[in-house]
């Protein structure tokens, strides 16, 4: 993609946000990195995309993106889903930075609901879009109380919920946005990634940033930080497995989307991560 001069074409500052706002957000990001997993309140701005559609992630990306960055945007693991397209276009218009669909070529990745299958490297940054940042929200609706619980590391209520799941269903029934303990101190929501992706967060060489625009919180997991999914000693955390393999590339260990292909309910399974699938497919064809 070409580097267009964003300033003259749109009349907006580079990456849309004014420099003061970027500075405010970067300060919040620094605080977040200094306290892994802790939710830092920030004055989220109204953006041209609606709340709930990635404004937090967009503000984080807009605050750290530079003219030399290469941006990848995915939603549900795919570059071509409507909202990923919309967000990528937004940055093409307002920042004019290079964009890519290849995980290995990106310096900055904004994502909704997946972590790429391709392992990330040092100096890459991944920005997650977060709808509800507070992991204790389902056990305690009041913000004043959850703040205290985090401050005092009072996380028993979360384990009580997991206990109830096992008592009722025999399993922990959370399958996405699965709560994690970061650096052994703060309870965190990883955003609605499937629990399949949780292990990727642990000791990841990349910087992981999380932006919640509507709820006005930013949090972070610095590189090489421990991220453990909550469980019980006798009900350990497990990830999903499929019996099928990817219809296109044959992968047996990536997250698969179920696609219904006709009105008789015929189903095929394909990799959710379209870039990963394409690379694998190309490698296989080259053999």
């Amino acid at each position: 993609m070409s580097n267009t001069d964003a300033n003259t074409s749109t009349g907006y500052n580079f990456a849309y946000l004014d420099e003061q706002t970027k500075r405010m957000i970067r300060r919040a990001i620094l605080k977040a990195v200094a306290i892994p997993g802790y939710q830092v309140p920030f004055a989220s701005r109204e953006m041209p995309l609606p709340y709930g559609w990635g404004t937090g992630g967009i503000q984080v990306t807009a605050s750290i993106i530079g003219p030399d960055d290469t941006l990848k945007v995915i939603d549900q693991g795919a570059d071509d889903t409507t909202n990923a397209v919309s967000i990528r276009r937004f940055f093409e218009r307002t920042a004019g930075t290079a964009t890519t669909e290849r995980t290995t070529e990106a310096s900055l990745i904004q994502t909704r609901h997946r972590i790429p299958e391709t392992p990330l490297r040092e100096h890459q940054i991944i920005v997650y879009q977060v709808p509800i940042p507070e992991p204790l929200r389902w056990v305690e609706p009041r913000e004043a109380e959850t703040r205290k619980m985090h401050a005092l590391a009072e996380y028993g209520a979360m384990y009580v919920r997991l206990y109830e799941d096992i008592a009722q269903f025999g399993h922990i029934t959370t399958t996405y946005d699965y709560p994690v303990m970061v650096d052994g101190r703060y309870l965190m929501r990883p955003s609605p990634i499937p629990k399949f992706d949780n292990p990727k967060m642990d000791m990841n060489p990349a910087l992981q940033l999380f932006g919640a625009g509507r709820e006005k919180r930013i949090y972070a997991v610095p590189p090489y930080t421990s991220v453990e999914s909550l469980d019980f000693a006798d009900h350990p955390f497990t990830i999903e497995r499929w019996e099928q393999s990817c219809e296109i590339c044959g992968s047996r260990d990536s997250f698969l989307d179920e696609v219904i292909t006709d009105d008789r309910g015929t189903r095929v399974f394909v990799c959710s991560d379209t870039d990963h699938c394409r690379q694998r497919g190309a490698a296989k064809a080259a053999e």
Binding site: E154, G156, A157, Y159, V160, Y163, E164, I166, A167, Q168, F232, A233, D234, H235
Partner: peptide, 24 residues
Amino acid sequence: GLSAGANIGERLMEVGSRHYGEIR
């Protein structure tokens, strides 16, 4: 809203009990 078992187990989980079978 919680089960009787969860009601009793809550204090244990608050102080770090992490074995479902033992809590139950």
